[in-house]
Design a protein around this nucleic acid. Structure first.
Lengths: 332, 332
DNA sequence: TCGCGGGCCTGAATCGTTACAGTAATTCTA
DNA sequence: TAGAATTACTGTAACGATTCAGGCCCGCGA
């Protein structure tokens, strides 16, 4: 009842517009969302004023009343760092989110339990949708989120027989292509430094790799129990080991730029020249590597595009779209 | 009046605890924050139950009532990418924020207007504090935030005669140290590839650089109008140009790892060997460079520590601490 | 002319929290 | 022992938005 000082002061609210138009608050609310019960003239009038005074709905008000947070959470493992993955993903997501009402909350977890941040978000309802990465073949987070009806999208696929949005790089095609390139350069004995077996794309990578070997009649040099998640020092040491091995591979395929650099460093230490004695093909996500080591052959994975896709997917799912329509596989 | 189904169902609220304890809602609210009006016994009882049932205050409720968002906004320029700056900053900030009630919202802006995201946050009150980077000597954002009473911290200092929290790398000391290293390696003719003059740390860098030249009686090779913000291709070309210059510098100091790589790439193209024909000293922020290009001399800047400091500073300021106590200068 | 159904708008209730003004019951003061 | 002060707790009113059950007025059919 006390329409004191609506005209002046603070941020405009529905009350402000109601006061200015002489309408009721609920009318204004409906008019702003083009409710059919409101006459066209009134709707236009309200919307005009709202625009003029720069009205923006109070997020807390909306959230409290409707439960809609207008937040997308990006859940990252601190391990995550394929040279720029984080920044590219963030920028990609923001590309999509800008111009919408969504904000991006970044939630890293250093802990060993990947479920913890997920549970937190679901239990406190602090986001409308979640983007997760480092997806595992049988990822507990996916099951949990599905169970709890929380929209999400994964960077990488799962192997669970359930449908959910994802963006994945076609690592099978990548590995196949890499083998083909090495074959084209006359290489025969190929090593694969792939991702850890806990991540599904390890299987895709291996599958493409093996298909390539078969197709071009090449053989594998078995690298043993080492993957792109290993300590850099360990990878360098492995490179050194290769350098001293008579039966060393003449081609190496690598799933991460940084690991390629590391293994290359080890090889170089032994006096081997990349591009001559050994060929190195790697995935990379920025122009950096080609600068640092132009002799390393690069196949680009675009994390920014991934971020864009993932954000689009989550938003669409939140809006009720069919998640099956948002499964993206990016070619190399 | 209708205490229907408080015991079961959804997330616990104050009402749930009120129902369980038989107390009033406001009593519970006060008890949880150790209000002095509530008896010790009651406070403990309430807090015990709250913990047991995993009560967490509804952020929207708090935010609507108090205006406190429990959000720190990190405002980034998409240009930003000193190899891992974004991820390291994010992880650093999260280190500090984890365990508190704060969430981290990341707001990149690709637009030319750095004020836009700042205004948005202030006008919509969508954060309690802001962390900004790419600080300029006379930064309009700093003035604006000060005017509007929004706590913030800057990555880098300003030159405005106002006090605010910051974390800065001592670029003067870095440049001086770099010159000293080059002097120690017998170099005489030094080039500086510094940051763009719009950023204050360009001055610090130059100042340290010039002091070093004077102290060790060396001379500058003037690189001209190029800085670490330039296109990589341009920097590479400049490196190539240097390689072909008879009077080329025998030492180069670089403010960003990626630029060092670029200029190094240009030099290498001309057959020059880094570490022999030319020495290259650069700032870098990960172990990457020193591992992969050991011939480049690295001085490390720790962005994660910066993130930690900045988050601590903003939180402290929000809590009413004196901003003057949160000015950090990190040595090389 | 009466009643009924739309069209257009409004008030009240609600989401979860906090600030503030009470209100009993108890204890202290003179 | 009356009155004041203290202790311990409670009800109400916001914060800003949305939802929903009306309410009023008009035109139309019988």
């Amino acid at each position: 009842m006390t329409n004191d000082d609506q005209s002046i002061g603070g941020r405009p609210t529905l009350k402000t517009i109601a006061f200015m138009t002489g309408l009721g608050i609920s009318t204004v609310s409906q008019a702003l969302k083009d409710g059919p019960d409101i006459s066209k003239a009134t709707r236009q009038r309200v919307q005009l004023i709202a625009k003029q005074i720069g009205y923006r709905p109070n997020r807390a008000g909306v959230r409290l009343r409707t439960g809609k947070t207008n937040v997308i959470a990006l859940v990252l493992n601190t391990k995550e760092e394929s040279m720029g993955l984080v920044s590219e993903m963030v920028y990609g997501i923001s590309d999509t989110l800008s111009g919408t009402s969504y904000h991006l909350v970044v939630t890293p977890y250093s802990l060993s339990d990947p479920m913890e941040p997920i549970r937190y978000i679901v239990e406190t309802g602090s986001a409308d949708g979640i983007i997760i990465s480092r997806t595992q073949p049988d990822d507990p987070r996916v099951g949990y989120l599905l169970d709890h009806g929380m929209p999400f999208a994964t960077h990488g696929r799962t192997n669970m027989g359930v449908v959910h949005p994802y963006h994945d790089f076609d690592n099978q095609a990548f590995a196949l292509e890499a083998v083909k390139i090495l074959h084209g350069r006359g290489r025969k004995n190929i090593a694969l430094l792939g991702p850890p077996p806990t991540l599904l794309y390890q299987r895709h990578t291996r599958s493409g790799f093996e298909a390539g070997l078969r197709a071009f009649d090449m053989r594998e040099y078995w690298l043993g129990d080492i993957d792109t998640d290993a300590e850099l020092a360990g990878i360098i040491a492995r490179g050194r080991g290769l350098g001293q091995d008579e039966a060393r591979p003449d081609g190496i395929i690598c799933s991460a730029a940084i690991s390629a650099l590391a293994i290359g460093a080890g090889l170089t230490e032994c006096g081997l020249r990349i591009g001559r004695d050994v060929d190195l093909v790697t995935k990379e996500s920025s122009q950096l590597l080609s600068l640092m080591r132009p002799e390393i052959i690069c196949i680009t994975e675009n994390f920014r595009a991934a971020g864009r896709d993932l954000a689009r997917a989550v938003m669409a799912w939140i809006d009720g779209a069919d998640p099956a329509n948002f499964q993206f596989l990016a070619g190399p």
